[in-house]
Amino acid sequence: MENPKANITSTAAGQHEKKDGAGGPIILFFILGLAASLVVGWVFVPETFYYTKEQPIDFSHAVHNELVDNGCQSCHFFRADGSYSGSPRLAQCIECHQEANSDDPNEIRFVEEYVKKGREVPWLVYSRQPACVFFSHAAHVKMAAIDCVTCHGPIGESDSLRPYMKMDDCAECHAQAKVSAGSVQTQKDGCLVCHH
């Protein structure tokens, strides 16, 4: 393969190289590019693409938790068919909030905007699962006796909310507990345990 031609071109190129000078600036540019893209990737894009949403009403679990008799179950409960009620509906809220009970501007707004108009509050629920997930509260709370705080954090005592769980978080626990290792493919949980 080697032929004199190649030698000639290589020396010609070498000559060219000399004119341009050393590799210093090239490395500088490389580093510049690296740094710029790192900033874009780690800072700029997350800042611009991902945003936080405000709840329609600034709701305090802590305040409510103090007032109710039955802890979390006062508002979040199991229905007779074993399904979980999730976030309370307006009808439930109205039981206490027919009229504003305080001069808290949030409560007043809640009564004016939602109770009086009979509109459901479009709560933003961190723990809401996508449509393809079936989550059984009964299986976790009743059968496996897992506390609410294990997954939801001490939400009843504070306003800070635990970021939503990804599948990996579920998987971690399920793998540990070997919840239903019936899958032929993986010898772990079958997908159907949670998905449909």
């Binding site: 080697e2 190649a6 071109t9 290589s10 010609a12 190129a13 070498g14 190289e17």
Partner: peptide, 18 residues
């Protein structure tokens, strides 16, 4: 390629890969 092969790095890379 005649022009690319003039670049020493490319030339050497091709050579080494061969």
């Amino acid at each position: 390629n005649r022009q690319l092969n003039r670049v020493p790095f490319f030339h050497h890379l091709a050579h080494n890969m061969h």
